[in-house]
Design a binder for these strands. Structure first.
Ligand code: FES
Ligand code: FES
Lengths: 145, 145
DNA sequence: TAGTTTTCCTCTAGATTTAGTAGGAATTAA
DNA sequence: TTAATTCCTACTAAATCTAGAGGAAAACTA
């Protein structure tokens, strides 16, 4: 039940992008430095993000990435799905023939319900909410001594 | 975000056990045959199930497994957790130092919320509910021609 | 007691997925 | 033209998953 680091880093990168894009396109090198991830790895993530219509890119000098939509219109669900592929706990949800006797399998209904819960939670969270919370954390951190 | 086959088969095996244990301990060979899983693989699963106090075992001839508690008192959460280890979407929930700057990471709160959603859903489903639904599926199947 | 059944334990191994890295081509701004 | 930056393809090392082999230990049966 674990998310890949793609999703983990990808969401963080999107938050960073939301916070940084006021002055035009953001370079991966900047995000890489701020998040402590290699630029090469970010390239992979942003390929998926772009392919799923979440970011726009500008090549060449002074290029970079910007959000394809306002952050309020981007949900966590879209980001995670773009990076993770699918949120189904079991493959037989999409492809029923992966389990023989799937028509008579009661557990399949459970996994279907679980998938719905996960999706509805992630759909309820927008990137702008997350970006705002992140900003508050930076400005008013709680120090644990 | 996928469950391992351990969890998938394990839950099915527990349902089968709940349905079959009226006449005493159930042998793995029976479950293996009914569920189309190798007996050797089931041994692994039941080791975890037993270690987590979900089943009791009886060795030797006419031995087998029974539920450690009535099926109404066993939740899906317990079964999945026994087999999967943890339901946390990211490791830094348990071990904060896996991510540097985790104190200032807004996404961590999101994953914490997601974990809660997953757990509360699985806690709301008992093995007896599932076993009953499975029985109904067998008795009144819908045939897709 | 001897024989059979069944769980229990350790070890091994192939397959798959994950998490990156390398190297360079294409594009754009200055 | 030069420098910056995304884009593309391929590759690889490591981790994890999914088992399977072989036999020890326990308990029932006769
Ligand atoms: S149909 Fe896939 S687990 Fe039952
Ligand atoms: S603290 Fe682990 S993802 Fe942010």
């Amino acid at each position: 039940m674990r998310l890949s680091t793609k999703a983990r880093y990808g969401v963080r990168a999107m938050v960073r992008l939301a916070l940084s894009q006021k002055d035009g396109p953001v370079q991966l090198s900047l995000i890489a430095e701020k998040e402590g991830v290699s630029e090469k790895y970010l390239e992979h993530l942003f390929r998926h993000l772009k392919a799923n219509g979440l970011v726009l890119s500008q090549r060449g000098a002074r290029g970079g990435y910007v959000l394809a939509r306002p952050a309020e219109k981007i949900t966590l669900y879209e980001i995670v799905k773009a990076l993770e592929g699918s949120l189904a706990p079991v493959d037989c949800l999409k492809q029923a023939d992966l389990c023989e006797r799937s028509l008579f399998c009661a557990t399949r209904e459970i996994w279907k319900g679980l998938k719905k819960k996960i999706e509805s939670y992630l759909k309820s969270k927008t990137l702008s909410e997350l970006a705002q919370e992140q900003e508050e954390k930076i400005n008013a951190p709680i120090y644990h001594i």
